[in-house]
Design a protein around this nucleic acid. Structure first.
Length: 270
DNA sequence: AAATTCTCCTGAAGGC
DNA sequence: TGCCTTCAGGAGAATT
């Protein structure tokens, strides 16, 4: 599933192929995504050049003169550059066509989105109340500690809250908490600033490493779905319920926390 | 305000 | 082999 590193990898992958190019045609085969694909999308895009490809949280922001197309990959979405004569397959819902290539949005589960916003994209409702980027300087131990004050929710849920920090999905939340030695159920408000500093470092380390691995995804970008690849080998706890901890040999526990699979080592994480 | 639950969807996995 | 059931999961919306 696309985590922040994969979205960033996607951004870097498509940017050089579409920046400066003029949109010839927009084909929407299935408008029923997370939200309906706006019918005015084609009108706004066709005839205009792509000015930039940016990312905020897991949203891709593709700007043209007058506004921005917002794309989200949801759980199963992907974007690929294909040639104009590539026949669409199942779940290829949207094509943004250029003279010699097509940006193709593919999403079996349709949790993704293709939206449009006039003017400043940050004015869009979805982008207005987001927390800081996890790899930015604004995301530090002091910030997390201050925000957590008085909160009773589990630290893992807290960390996955997009108002707190964006882009930390279930897999990385599990991994970062393991790396920081923090039990995922600990009340967010009861964690010391020192431990939050350690957690922030862990989040940054895990994401940075994954982005580095994302380079592999980038090379395979136009290929058919190479999804399991890049991080599966180095997961310490995610998906390893019942297996032995790679650090202490204890058994990895699996619980549900806020309807999410949660994994931890009860020996390493307290 | 914060916390919890619900919701969208399909493919994979498990049961029989 | 095949049909049926269960379930994961990003994150906004609805609800408590």
């Amino acid at each position: 599933m696309p985590e922040l590193p994969e979205v960033e990898t996607t951004r870097r992958g498509i940017e050089p192929h579409i920046c400066g190019k003029i949109v010839d045609e927009v084909i929407v085969r299935q408008p029923q995504l997370r939200w309906p694909v706006p019918s005015l999308l084609a009108d706004r895009l066709v005839g205009n050049a792509i000015l930039s490809v940016n990312r905020r949280a897991k949203y891709l922001l593709i700007a043209i003169d007058g506004g921005t197309m917002i794309m989200h990959l949801g759980m199963s979405g992907s974007l690929r550059m294909v040639t104009a004569d590539t026949p669409p397959g199942k779940h290829d819902h949207v094509d943004i066509c250029f003279q010699e290539s097509v940006l193709r949005f593919h999403d079996p589960r349709r949790f993704g989105a293709v939206l449009w916003v006039d003017g400043d994209p940050m004015g869009h409702k979805l982008l207005q109340q987001l927390g800081p980027e996890p790899l930015s300087g604004a995301f530090d131990g002091e910030y997390l500690h201050r925000l957590a004050r008085g909160r009773k929710s589990a630290v893992k849920t807290f960390l996955m809250n997009g108002h707190v920090v964006v882009g930390v999905g279930n897999i990385y939340a599990n991994e970062a908490l393991f790396q920081a030695g923090i039990h995922p159920k600990t009340a967010a408000g009861k964690i010391s600033i020192n431990r939050y500093e350690r957690l922030v470092e862990a989040v940054k380390a895990v994401l940075t490493e994954a982005i580095k691995q994302g380079g592999t995804t980038l090379r395979d970008f136009t290929r058919e779905d190479g999804k399991p690849g890049y991080f599966a080998q180095q997961l310490n706890v995610y998906g390893r319920g019942g297996a032995n901890c790679l650090v202490c040999g204890g058994v990895i526990k699996e619980i549900r926390l806020g309807q999410r699979s949660t994994f931890y080592c009860s020996n390493c994480q307290n």
